[in-house]
Every structure is written in C-alpha cells, then in structure tokens.
C-alpha cells in the first residue's frame, strides 16, 4: 500500500471527501463486521454525509453504509486518494 500521508480516522473526513482505508482498529467483533460490509484496507470510501456529530454515511464498494461515530473512528484512512 502506498504511504501517502498519515492515516486519519474516517470521521474526520468531510461530506464529499474520499479516502482509502489504511487500517482497521478496535475489537475483533467490530473489525469482523466492518470487513463483512466491505470496509477492508485498500478499499475506497466516499463520505456521503458527515454533520460533525451523530452517525455518518459513506459509500464503499457501491454500497451505502451507515456508521456510528465511535465505529467510524476505528477506520483509519488516507485522505483524498483516487
């Protein structure tokens, strides 16, 4: 994986921004659920909605996925690739 810039938590991306997943943190159960929904390292995410509080909405692998803020903080992304 190309290391273009430091990875930041997904919840810091604004509406409309894109990123590439670098790493998943958090417990094994949470990671398993994220992986099954297509949030794998290397996958591209587009933020569809992030109002800075409450849950956020992203598109990954052609699917719209809603994540709680706490959950989103466990997805580390590299901003703006692709």
């Amino acid at each position: 994986m190309a290391n273009g810039g430091a990875a930041i938590p997904l919840n810091l991306l604004h509406t409309g921004e894109r990123g590439k997943i670098a790493q998943l943190t958090g417990g094994q159960e949470l990671r398993n659920r994220m992986l099954a929904l297509g949030l794998t390292p290397g996958a591209e995410v587009t933020v569809l909605q992030n109002y800075g509080r409450g849950p956020m909405l992203v598109r990954v692998r052609d699917v719209r996925v809603a994540l709680g803020r706490g959950e989103a903080a466990n997805v580390l992304v590299q901003r703006g690739e692709g």
């Binding site: 159960e29 659920r33 929904l37 909405l57 699917v63 719209r64 996925v65 809603a66 709680g68 959950e71």
Partner: peptide, 8 residues
Amino acid sequence: SAFIMELP
C-alpha cells in the same frame, strides 16, 4: 452492539 448497517 456496534452501529454499522447498510442503507439499501
């Protein structure tokens, strides 16, 4: 339980 779900 974690809040992650698909919006179909």
